[in-house]
Design a protein around this nucleic acid. Structure first.
Lengths: 114, 114
DNA sequence: CCCTTATATAAGATAATACTTATATGATTA
DNA sequence: TAATCATATAAGTATTATCTTATATAAGGG
């Protein structure tokens, strides 16, 4: 049973995840932290569109950003009020691990040692 | 663990529940079937606005309607592909039972014997 | 320093949303 | 069958969302 959260808080989370592109972005970020250029490869959207979605997710507190060199990595914010619900939602989706593997095989994944 | 559903199916559900008024409507309908005039009492929206939200929920397959006399009652569609997820979401919200009780005390609830 | 790569932001077009008011439909009742 | 109650639909409007293209910023490597 999930900790009860306000209607406002919950509907805001659901609105953010109610866009299929953002939902897919969250799937990838849930699997492992991703940088912007990886998400551009994984999702059929322009780089500015990806950045704009990421800003919405960040403004809503769902993800956190961290610059590493010239890349900016995004990861889940495990402190979010509705984090348990978010995880339930993401776990109810078909895995995207295969797509991440493919990215790696194509040498398009970003490994940062900073 | 919830049965995996497609991104499209899931994001459509989340978009429908990503509006605080619709989310509240679903809470009431989840608690017990409600007619339109009850929802108008429970939620601070005009009757046409309520009807329009209900149509969206019905078009998305989240609720089913049933006419009983001059009233139209809406209830959850337990056959919906994402029904398990929907229930998880609704159960993660503060109960609205108190508001339904209040409606009853005010004599504004609709009891239909058709 | 310039040049490139990665990312963000700005500005603008277009479409989708969520209301409003007015009106239509459908059932019940006098 | 006229009046009333419950609900749906239509039309209009204001706001918000989601892209696009162009440009700005920030970091890293010759």
């Amino acid at each position: 049973m999930l900790k009860p959260q306000s209607i406002q808080q919950t509907s805001q989370t659901l609105k953010l995840l109610g866009d299929s592109n953002r939902l897919r972005m969250m799937q990838f970020i849930y699997e492992r932290e991703c940088c912007v250029c990886e998400l551009v490869e994984l999702i059929n959207l322009s780089q500015p569109a990806i950045s704009q979605h990421l800003r919405k997710l960040r403004d809503g507190g769902l993800v956190m950003e961290q610059r590493k060199g010239s890349w900016v990595f995004y990861r889940m914010n495990d402190e979010h009020a509705t984090i348990e619900l978010i995880k339930e939602i993401l776990q109810s989706l078909p895995s995207v691990q295969g797509e991440l593997d493919e990215l790696e095989q194509d040498g398009l994944n970003v490994i940062c040692h900073k």
